[in-house]
Design a protein around this nucleic acid. Structure first.
Length: 249
RNA sequence: AUUCUCAGCCGGCG
């Protein structure tokens, strides 16, 4: 059964829902992992109707993971109120469920509601804090994110990157730079955020330096620099970069 | 890696 479940998720990850479903149908018996795996297959491939249908009508029972899957799916689709309804219908809530509603509000820029949830949560972890921090930063409430960042018990690379990215979005290049240089580690995501901060401010040379110093480069990193060149009409640089891209899209 | 939550670019869909 574990092998079947593995196959269901594997298909789902590649967007092959119908194959996932066939595998699911072929299961001699189904446990919660099978059901939740199939539910995830729908949820993560934007098949909300099927997901809801499965959750409400097909599943013999739900556990906390099932609710969390549907909740997150509604949140990502911008259907915050449906997400909240799922949350309210759950028998019990673990931290993932709480973070799930929090994220649903955050993704849809419902600052007040997010804050209410954040304050009401029985426990919070670094994910909860990062979500609030990121929400404030994206909304341009940098003072709020700075103060959260300042009082957090721990910070991870996501916390740092959210701040850098918030500064970048709000055109605070020097703040972004200062924080970037203080970071304990960098990864490709952090560097792309910083690259973009430079680029948005017209510092293409600095953006290029960040790019060259990156530990590894993924498609997003290449695209970011390419876009920056294109935007600034550095077409020769853009062309050179384009020709050096390992994979084009 | 059998199922759920957080950060970066572009595009698609609504």
């Amino acid at each position: 059964i574990t092998s079947f479940n593995t196959m269901v998720s594997a298909y789902a990850q590649h967007g092959r829902i119908d194959d996932a479903r066939r595998m699911f149908e072929a299961l001699p018996e189904r446990d919660m992992v099978s059901w939740n795996g199939m539910l995830t297959a729908y949820a993560q491939n934007n098949r909300l109707v099927e997901a809801a249908e499965m959750f409400l009508r097909e599943m013999p029972k739900h556990d906390m993971v099932s609710g969390n899957i549907l909740l997150a799916a509604y949140g990502q689709a911008g259907r915050v109120d449906d997400a909240k309804r799922v949350f309210d219908g759950m028998m019990e809530h673990n931290l993932v469920a709480w973070n799930g509603v929090l994220i649903a509000y955050a993704e849809n820029a419902r600052i007040e509601d997010a804050k209410l949830v954040f304050d009401a949560m029985p426990d919070s972890d670094i994910v909860s804090w990062n979500v609030m921090l990121g929400l404030y930063a994206q909304a341009g409430h940098l003072e709020e994110s700075e103060s959260l960042f300042g009082v957090m018990r721990q910070r991870n690379i996501v916390s740092w990157t959210s701040m850098v990215s918030g500064y970048a979005q709000n055109r605070q290049l020097q703040q972004a730079r200062g924080l970037f240089l203080q970071m304990p580690q960098w990864n490709v995501v952090t560097c792309t955020a910083m690259l973009l901060a430079y680029a948005r401010d017209g510092h293409l040379d600095e953006a290029k330096l960040v790019f060259d110093g990156m530990p590894e480069r993924d498609q997003a990193a290449w695209n970011a620099l390419l876009e920056a060149y294109a935007e600034a009409r550095h077409l020769d640089d853009a062309k050179d970069l384009f020709d050096r891209m390992p994979e084009r899209n």
